[in-house]
């Protein structure tokens, strides 16, 4: 069982709407997996189930073989999952560095008594936090100002910081929700290269993305969702050729040739 993440038959429903309806896939170490599908296919809902923001109505999520299903988000994060959000969820009034430090909360290294008495331990750990924050900002290639509130930075810079924050968590699995949305061409190229470097750190990546060019280039495997179901899974080439995928994206032919909604 070398899978980092196993999602087994995941279900979640809001009232009568089945947002995720039987999703299963595995992610192995150092793998980049993309989850794609039309809007409303249930991709983000699946992410929220995996990270504990929604309680799945049925199904199981295993991280390195241990069940994390239905735990609270903080515990799942502590178990080794980190994520970004579809629409930036930074801490707008805090500085860039503080935002990255958020990802390092679990490092510990000081307690409240250290803070009150400014013990050497406290000073060491604060210095380490700052050092580490700079390191991750460098890693994602962030070149903007770092001591200012993040609220007024450019969108692309904010996205970089959000990834740096998630990386600082040093997790085994990184979930990126539409990391390329709103980025221009050169920023996307840098993102592509960044994904590879993250993978080389030993972190597996699952990303939701609409930019097909990026998806095809970056991912080793692709999971395609539609109406909460998984309709295809495979390498980029396999997925591209899959009739169910073409149907989901382009609609069904008039003569009804493509009929089956099921497995790939």
């Amino acid at each position: 069982m070398s899978a980092v993440l196993e999602v087994k038959n995941l279900h979640i429903a809001f009232g009568g709407v089945k947002a995720v309806d039987g999703l299963s896939f595995d992610v192995h170490a150092k793998q980049i997996v993309a989850v794609i599908g039309p809007n409303g296919a249930g991709k983000t809902s699946a992410f929220n189930c995996i990270t504990g923001f929604y309680k799945p109505t049925a199904g199981e999520v295993l991280l390195k073989g241990a069940a994390i299903t239905g735990k609270r988000p903080a515990d799942i994060a502590a178990a080794g999952v980190s994520r970004t959000f579809q629409n930036l969820r930074l801490f707008p009034d805090l500085t860039v560095l503080d935002n990255v430090r958020a990802g390092m909360h679990l490092y510990g290294g000081q307690n409240w008594a250290d803070a009150i008495f400014h013990t050497p331990r406290f000073k060491r750990s604060e210095a380490a936090y700052t050092e580490e924050a700079h390191r991750w900002l460098d890693f994602v290639g962030y070149t903007g100002p770092r001591g200012v509130p993040i609220r007024n930075l450019a969108y692309g810079q904010q996205k970089q910081v959000e990834i740096a924050r998630a990386l600082a968590r040093k997790s085994d699995l990184l979930l990126l929700d539409e990391p390329a949305a709103g980025l221009n061409y050169s920023e996307k190229q840098r993102l592509l290269e960044l994904c590879h470097r993250i993978r080389n750190l030993g972190t597996a990546i699952v990303l939701i993305e609409h930019d097909m060019g990026l998806v095809m280039e970056v991912s080793e495997r692709i999971v395609v969702m539609n109406f909460g179901r998984e309709i295809a899974e495979g390498t980029p080439a396999e997925v591209k050729a899959n009739p169910a995928v073409i149907e989901a994206y382009l609609g069904r032919d008039e003569d009804g040739e493509v009929q089956s909604h099921g497995d790939a």
């Binding site: 990270t51 923001f53 609270r72 988000p73 903080a74 515990d75 994060a77 502590a78 980190s82 994520r83 959000f85 969820r89 930074l90 801490f91 707008p92 009034d93 805090l94 503080d98 430090r101 958020a102 990802g103 909360h105 679990l106 924050r165 968590r169």
Partner: peptide, 19 residues
Amino acid sequence: RAWRFVREDEDAAEAMGIH
């Protein structure tokens, strides 16, 4: 800092492992 993270965005704080 954890307090401020909670103040600014509870979900994001939670996602970073802050209980």
